[in-house]
Amino acid sequence: MTCSTLFLSLLLLFCFVPAAMAAPEQPLLQISAVTFDPATVSPGKDFKMLVTLTNHGEYHAYNVTLDVLSQAGANDLGVFSMVGTGGHFYVEKIKSGESAVIEIPMVSSPSAEAKNYNLNLQLNCEDYDGDVYNFTATVGIVINESESMSIIAPERYVLTKDDKGLTTIGFEIANFGSNPVRGVQVSVAGAGLDFSNTYQYYGTFEKEDSDDFSTEVTTDKTGEFPGVITLKFMDSFNNERTVEKAITIVSEEAVAKGDNTEEENFFEKFLRVVFGIGS
């Protein structure tokens, strides 16, 4: 390859190198990560939004500020509120190529629907000479439904037999969330216990819907038996969720009958041995 051909090839190569590969000769702040604590944001709950700011510019960024402005499409924060402080946060310096994490405490409204919300942020900084740079950003917050369905049941059930020698126990399930849920189903289980009904499918629960579950319980043993009620459903984000409640089922009547039988057997044996009665 001649020198002229090599020079032309190198010239064409440099002409097509993207200009974005070079860092700008100024501070350049961008949001590189957003995380939450706890990881799931729920209606009516406090949480922290952790925003990582990275300086992609050649110059250091001084007097960095982050302002939480509003919910997208609204004039204020909408279903969110700041906790403890206002919406203004400050970092003294972010060096070129480095990052800083800003912790933003917030709370969501108890009536917030489960969906994604966008928040508008404003980033400001200065360079070493005091020149000011402004950047806008938008972050998304997903409000999920971690506690929409509930099991309303006592912790202990005492078996009291009816005329048929059976005990019926029952409890309630309810949707206290802000969105409908689908595929609602309930099961109950317990070692040493016999249930006439261990499973029921309900389908869709709208907001504030509730329903009952009942089953007959029998056991030929005495004592306390641990059990569990399991509630499964699909939330509005198509996530399968499970709620469990531990219960204790107590069988007392059989204990009394067993004790009486033992006493009677011992007394009969005593009479037979001493007086020869009943032999």
Rank of each mutant, 00 (worst) to 15 (best):
S251Y: 03
T222P: 00
R156D: 02
N116Q: 11
S148Y: 00
E126S: 13
E155P: 01
M21R: 09
K48S: 14
N55W: 08
T261M: 08
S214K: 04
T136R: 07
Y133C: 08
T35D: 15
N175E: 06
T40V: 11
M21V: 11
F171P: 07
V273F: 13
S150A: 12
E264T: 14
R241F: 00
N265D: 12
N63E: 06
N118Y: 12
N175A: 03
D163I: 09
T65D: 10
E244V: 02
T160S: 05
G258T: 15
T248K: 12
K48T: 15
E262A: 15
I94H: 04
V83S: 10
M149W: 00
E98M: 10
F89E: 06
N265W: 01
A254E: 07
V186I: 14
L13D: 05
E155L: 08
E216P: 01
K95H: 04
L69G: 01
E113M: 02
K48Y: 03
Q122N: 12
N124G: 08
S108V: 03
N239I: 06
T52R: 13
N238F: 06
K245L: 04
M21Y: 03
A254M: 05
G223F: 05
S251E: 15
G86H: 05
G278P: 02
E98W: 09
L66W: 03
S4C: 04
A39M: 07
S9P: 00
F195Y: 13
E264M: 04
A112R: 04
V91N: 09
D76V: 09
G86Q: 04
V188A: 02
F14K: 03
K115Q: 13
N63L: 11
Y117Q: 03
S236D: 07
G86V: 02
A74V: 04
V64F: 01
A254T: 11
I141Q: 05
L11R: 08
G57D: 09
T167M: 05
H56Y: 14
A256V: 12
G44K: 00
F171L: 06
D76H: 09
G203I: 09
D162G: 05
D235E: 02
S42C: 11
F7M: 08
S210K: 05
K221I: 01
E98R: 07
F7D: 10
L29I: 15
P154L: 06
V273Q: 09
T167Y: 07
S81C: 05
V250H: 07
Y128C: 02
V217Y: 03
G87S: 13
N63Y: 09
L50N: 14
Y62K: 10
V139K: 13
T138I: 14
V255N: 04
T204S: 12
L159K: 13
N120K: 10
L193R: 09
I152Y: 08
A137K: 08
D67E: 13
P226E: 15
V83K: 15
F36Y: 15
F275Y: 14
L13R: 03
E216W: 03
N197G: 01
D194Q: 12
E244I: 01
N144Q: 08
G86D: 10
E172Q: 11
K269L: 10
V228A: 09
G140N: 06
E264K: 10
S99T: 15
C15K: 06
